[in-house]
Design a binder for these strands. Structure first.
Lengths: 234, 234
DNA sequence: ACAAAAGTGTTGGCCTTACACCCATGC
DNA sequence: GCATGGGTGTAAGGCCAACACTTTTGT
């Protein structure tokens, strides 16, 4: 039996250096109590009018993670935001131009900080729950990344990345309810977060609300980094 | 500002079809109460004598998942076993032959069913906890896949894939203790698994043990598939 | 009879859930 | 003063962790 292994035999490999690697970024934001994702209109004739994720080919001298950060930076102006690889998508005919294997990342951004780098208004935030059709296999990619996010926020306090620096507990709860698509009990939610001790009371209040203003908090990243990272368990 | 997007602009792509895609399989087995992984000796001069994962280039007409299954089949003779993609590894100089982005998979196999397809005895099962050095970035890949496995067995009953069809509760506990690297309470462990109702009592006993023989069970996959897949929570 | 591992229940503490009233502010 | 959402505590039940003795088999 003849078996090959790229890790032991090199001679036949040269013929195979013909694929392209891309990254696709699922950029999540939170606005108007909805989870949003940043999409771009596709110009490709095959997908005319459909929305697609932000992505690009990985350059020859570029790490895949760097490529993902580059895409993010070029489109949103943001750096140093939360980003995580999800997985590769490598179906045979997923891209009309040829064999393109894409690596999917998702990132969590404060939607207020984003300055869209747009040419003809072709970039838009879409409510995740309203998205029906997308170009390529991007609906799959989005769904997989969204699932990953849902698991992640249960496990670790990453949701803060989607909020402004100062936020109320109501904001935080709205965020979790939007991501997980559940209703949560207000008192128990507060208890849980105060018990975790990651919130810093800023002794400030909301402005311009026409009811009793809520206290504002910020997230204490350092405290979280120190402690054993235990599950939030919703 | 000029930004590119593979999902909207195609003209410049051709130049980039020069990378290679590979898959690397972390094939886990369980034997002598230890978690093992199947490795092959590297022939590459750069990694002479080091052990590496089983991997291969993804063929042009081949899905990445199919490629992973092919590697598994060619080396172990197995098909239809548990396998899951973990993530891509795309560091710049991870392969001496050029730009090779690899997609890592792990699979769980019954080590008794494996017939190693070996040419010069270059394939071996290694205890995961004893592995020190590996070729390429394979130690990273293994570590990432092992972590994923640890989370997975807590979440879903996939451990059965590593055991023979018939097993005792002691076998099952040994497996979980090996994977999670913890000691578990025997009574609570039994309670938990009986409560989940995934085990079928075969009304058989161990043979050839020099103490009281344990009852044998099998896993009821169908029952699991039907129920809501709830966490095992160790 | 002895060695070795299998098998079996109960209790206490903790964590989770469910639930209702008063408070501060803007209009 | 009224409408709106903010803020707070407690009790009951379920879940998990800790723990020791008896049973079965081989030698």
């Amino acid at each position: 039996m003849h078996t090959k292994n790229i890790n032991t035999h090199l001679t036949e490999i040269k013929d195979y250096f013909k694929a392209a690697i891309s990254v696709d970024c699922v950029i999540f934001g939170f606005d108007e109590n909805e989870l949003k994702v940043l999409l771009i209109e596709s110009d490709l004739k095959e997908y005319k009018g459909k929305w697609s994720l932000l992505g690009d080919i990985v350059h020859p001298d570029e790490d895949i993670e760097s490529a993902a950060y580059r895409v993010l930076r070029e489109r949103t102006g943001l750096e140093d935001v939360f980003m995580e690889q999800v997985q590769a998508f490598g179906g045979l005919n997923r891209h009309p131009a040829g064999r393109v294997v894409t690596i999917a990342y998702y990132s969590l951004v404060n939607i207020q900080h984003v300055e869209l780098k747009t040419l003809q208004n072709e970039l838009h935030w879409h409510a995740v729950k309203d998205i029906r059709q997308m170009a390529f296999d991007h609906k799959d990619i989005l769904a997989t990344c969204y699932q990953r996010l849902q698991h992640k926020v249960i496990d670790q306090p990453v949701g803060f990345n989607l909020l402004p620096k100062k936020f109320s507990l109501r904001d935080l709860q709205n965020l979790y309810e939007a991501i997980l698509d559940v209703k949560l009990d207000r008192r128990n939610f507060r208890k849980k977060f105060f018990a975790m001790d990651y919130l810093v009371d800023l002794n400030e209040e909301e402005q311009d609300v026409r009811h009793r203003p809520a206290r504002l908090y910020k997230f204490n990243q350092d405290k979280y980094d120190l402690q054993h990272k235990k599950s939030l368990g919703f």
